[in-house]
């Protein structure tokens, strides 16, 4: 262990502080700018006002976008959880040829840039309109990343659950299905919550696929925000962004608090 009081320890401390500034700086700038009393985005903020928040909350486009995003992210979170957990159970409980390969394939969408996925999906839907445009298409597309996210969280959680637990439940008279729901599922609870939160936040914050595949009528909040940022750069954009950051923060804290119970 390196002592934090040694000269090298001080360098480490400095690095940590710089990293935090680098990571959190943009968030700080946008949150600060949202309180500015000017008609344009300004940093450092001039004056202090909540009027951009009032304006954002009163704007029907933002409100509509928020509810579209909520529906989208909620659906994606639930479906990702169902599909991802089922896949994780299969990958950890059963031995079959090609298991490791399948696991790698399942996780691969996580390493693709969002734009690549968005373009590929646009071309795909143009050739094969398998789902109606708008939200349904967007849900299916977001599942491509949502399911791997859930899988990523649930695989290690499932690997830590003693397989003898289900056997014990069966030995005591529970059918395999009962054993799963009575014993394995409760053991997975904290993981399930974290996985769902991750999938929800991803879908809620996603821009590229939403831009390419969403319809103008059902535009998610991120798309509305993107449009507004291009048209008029007033602090409303910053206010909405600040509220998005707050939402993500609340979800992360809730999930951590739940896991540490």
């Amino acid at each position: 262990m390196i002592s934090l009081r040694s000269p090298f320890g001080w360098v480490l401390r400095l690095m940590a502080v710089l990293t935090f500034i680098y990571l959190l700086g943009p968030l700080f700038v946008i949150v600060a700018a949202s309180f500015s009393d000017t008609g344009y985005l300004a940093f450092p903020p001039q004056g202090l006002s909540l009027r951009w928040y009032r304006q954002a909350l009163g704007d029907v486009r933002y409100l509509n976008g928020f509810f579209v995003s909520l529906r989208l992210a909620g659906t994606v979170a639930v479906l990702s959880l169902l599909i991802g957990t089922a896949a994780a159970v299969a990958l950890t409980r059963f031995r079959f040829p090609g298991r490791a390969l399948l696991e790698a394939i399942f996780l691969s969408p996580l390493v693709l840039p969002g734009l690549v996925l968005a373009v590929a999906l646009t071309l795909f839907y143009a050739a094969h309109p398998v789902a109606p445009p708008g939200l349904p298409r967007l849900v299916i597309s977001h599942l491509l990343v949502g399911v791997p996210l859930v899988l990523r969280v649930m695989l290690p959680v499932l690997k830590r659950v003693d397989p003898a637990l289900e056997e014990a439940a069966q030995n005591l008279g529970a059918s395999p299905l009962h054993a799963f729901f009575l014993v394995t599922l409760p053991a997975l609870k904290p993981g399930l919550f974290a996985a769902a939160a991750l999938a929800f936040i991803f879908s809620f914050d996603e821009v590229e696929m939403a831009l390419f595949l969403g319809s103008a009528r059902d535009a998610p909040l991120t798309v509305v925000l993107y449009g507004a940022a291009q048209m008029q750069m007033d602090p409303t954009v910053a206010a909405v962004s600040a509220m998005l950051i707050l939402l993500a923060l609340i979800l992360m804290v809730a999930q951590q608090a739940y896991a540490n119970r």
């Binding site: 069966q170 030995n171 529970a174």
Partner: peptide, 29 residues
Amino acid sequence: PPHRRDTGMVFQSYALFPHLTVAENIAFG
């Protein structure tokens, strides 16, 4: 299938249900 057999097994790892209390564990069967 295991759940229809009338056996009571004590596992090497004990396999106690972690989310259930002592009384609930014993009452499970």
